[in-house]
Amino acid sequence: MTHQKLTMAQALNHALRDAMRADDTVLMFGEDVGALGGVFRITDGLTAEFGEDRCFDTPLAESGIVGMAVGLAMNGMRPVVEMQFDAFGYPAFEQVVSHVAKMRNRTRGKVTLPMVIRMPYAGGIGGVEHHCDSSESYYAHTPGLTVVAPATVADAYTLLRKAIEFPDPVIFMEPKKLYWAKEEVDLTTEQPGIGKAVVRREGRDATLIAYGPSVPIALEAADAAAAEGRQLQVVDLRSIVPFDDEKVCAAVRSTGRAVVVAEASGFASVSSEIVARVTERCFHSLAAPIRRVTGFDIPYPPPKLERHQLPGVDRILDAVDDLQWEDS
């Protein structure tokens, strides 16, 4: 038993360290991940422990970083790369969509790419333009990519370890506003793997479906609802692709009502996909159409206006109120 109080940033750092200790083909590289330890300190101390060949800074070019990772993975390495911020992953989009996602399929499984693209993402930190994008839908829309977003400290550790061990490329979305969230954790506890959603809170009246940065807000909303006598269940997706239809649908069937909570803009997004597939599968169990609480369909706002973009407890409770309750 090794209980310790860790931030999500520290848990991610532990995951990288343990993965690098366990397998010396695991390499970590990107911008400022060496001496600085990453702008969020996720790679703190890795160069010191594993040396320049295992954790290193590259020239400043995201397409180069991801493209080189493809080659390294083709030749026996397990690269983990960091895109410094969500929006700075865009110069690598060509590599991600045209090669990272397609190599296995192109070569009928002869060339596989076990690699992880770590991406601090989403808002809530008062960042200026290009520092707060929720870009998960671009990746989730791209067949061949596995997309994961932890919401808890324990999951940050587990999911990153499993992503590094995964046989295919994983886009690992780190909700940067949760980096400093602290939790008492035991990293040796086995957690569900990639592709598995979990119920974070039981409740019989309605289901909140969330992932990444929206999970703590959903839990907060459930607390507030409980105070008003409504028991909300909270499902944390953890894995966007593969999507856990079974767990999510079972949860929704158990309550008959659902609200999807996501920070990203709602139009043509992961949240729209969730509504569509759950509706297709659970239509006859639903007492009301599934509602969504998402970011508006606008570029992420400047710091002074960002609070308007973030799903908050009140918006979630309003959406829950709208779920056609006979008694009200």
Partner: peptide
């Protein structure tokens, strides 16, 4: 410098 990365790592 590019944040922490010295020129020698760029070129």
């Amino acid at each position: 410098y590019a944040i922490s990365v010295p020129l020698a790592r760029q070129t």
